[in-house]
Write a protein that binds this DNA or RNA. Structure first.
Lengths: 210, 210
DNA sequence: AAAGATTAGGGGGTTTCCCCCCATTATATT
DNA sequence: AATATAATGGGGGGAAACCCCCTAATCTTT
């Protein structure tokens, strides 16, 4: 009996190609392909459509990989998710693993690694590459983003905009001086010098999608 | 006799998967895979390694798809290049086609389209999907980016940095006032209000990679 | 040769940003 | 009860960014 796999990726050619590759693996069968998380969740409602493992991209329209994985872990705790993405920034990887992914592969791994990861996740429960292990151990604490308060995060997103601080204060329903406070505390925490630095930080850490 | 194809993509799993897919096509054989443009150019020096068509990604380290395509068109004018990328912004597509690509596929097309495109490019010289045709006809003139001078482009890239204008002026070897001139003319042309707007413009038009 | 565009530079003024200082509430923590 | 620590608000000064208006040299075009 082969293990069943579902590939979720918004780029159709890629999910077809990866699906074809997985189909070529001895122990695996591709059940079907999905273009985003919502499509997968719809499919899963039919018990026959529940695979052994989901190979999930992260950046997707409608419902992304992180949100989808959270829902799957809540509603189908036995269904394993293996992340397969080009995003290699620590924060994304951490968020995906916290959401319940059993492993995280970058899209430039080799065919054999994919096969091994699929097998290990199903038979042993998880698979972590060197990169990912390092991130898991190293940067869990000194992750500066965990120190960012909710209000500051709100501010960051608005700062990545042509608005000036007075307009941002209006939207955040607080005074101009409060907004300056958020800014100053972020500059100190993140070691940046000006608003451009803040925008660059937000981009590098996927706090907003340009 | 089958046509020979080379796949160039920095994500190894993807080039393997797409290569596998192409290998499955009746009329095509995969000659080899490359991880970037430089690797391809090195390979091409050996005449036996020249394929009928190259399936090229755009964003790649070391030597990207646009630069590589330019070189290929200069040095191997008979070698056809078909772009296969996730970048769907007009400017990138235009640059790739101007560099000499015979067609431009997005990574969410279907298997059958890829096969058709490969065939058409080899047998008829080009293949354009609807999207690409529209962009070719529609936006060639009113593309605001063609109005950006070289010096201004240099400035934009430096403006997407924590440097202030005085430091930018030093790097550009001109006076602070000249830099202000570039800025003001860009603000007028692009209809933006401040430096954040400039950074957002640069991101949206792939003028710099964050 | 005259007109126009391009590139480089400058004067001066207003606004915004940056960075110190500080005070007042809550709300936890010890 | 005393003490952090958010979250909120504020004053003031200096630097940077922004935005006008202007000049001059070098090209291109007509």
């Amino acid at each position: 009996m082969k293990y069943s796999v579902v590939v979720v990726d918004d780029h159709y050619l890629l999910s077809q190609a990866i699906g074809g590759m997985v189909q070529g693996f001895e122990k695996f069968d591709v059940l079907y392909l999905c273009k985003n998380g919502q499509e997968l969740l719809d499919k899963l409602k039919e018990p026959n459509n529940i695979p052994d493992i989901v190979l999930m991209d992260i950046k997707m329209p409608i419902l992304n990989g992180i949100e989808t994985t959270e829902i799957i872990n809540r509603e189908y705790p036995n269904l394993k998710v293996l992340a397969l993405s080009i995003e290699e920034d620590e924060y994304t990887i951490l968020k995906m693993l916290r959401a319940g992914a059993r492993g995280y592969l970058l899209k430039d791994t080799k065919k054999e690694i994919l096969e091994e990861a699929l097998t290990k996740v199903i038979e042993e429960g998880s698979y972590y590459t060197n990169n990912v292990s390092k991130i898991l151990t190293g940067s869990l604490e000194n992750d500066v983003r965990t120190e960012i308060k909710d209000r500051e995060l709100e501010f960051i997103k608005l700062a990545c905009t042509e608005m000036n601080y007075r307009e941002i204060a209006d939207i955040m329903c607080c005074s101009y001086k409060t907004v300056e406070g958020y800014r100053d505390s972020l500059y100190r925490k993140l070691g940046i010098k000006n608003r451009i630095g803040l925008v660059l930080f937000a981009i590098h850490h996927n706090l907003f999608t340009p």
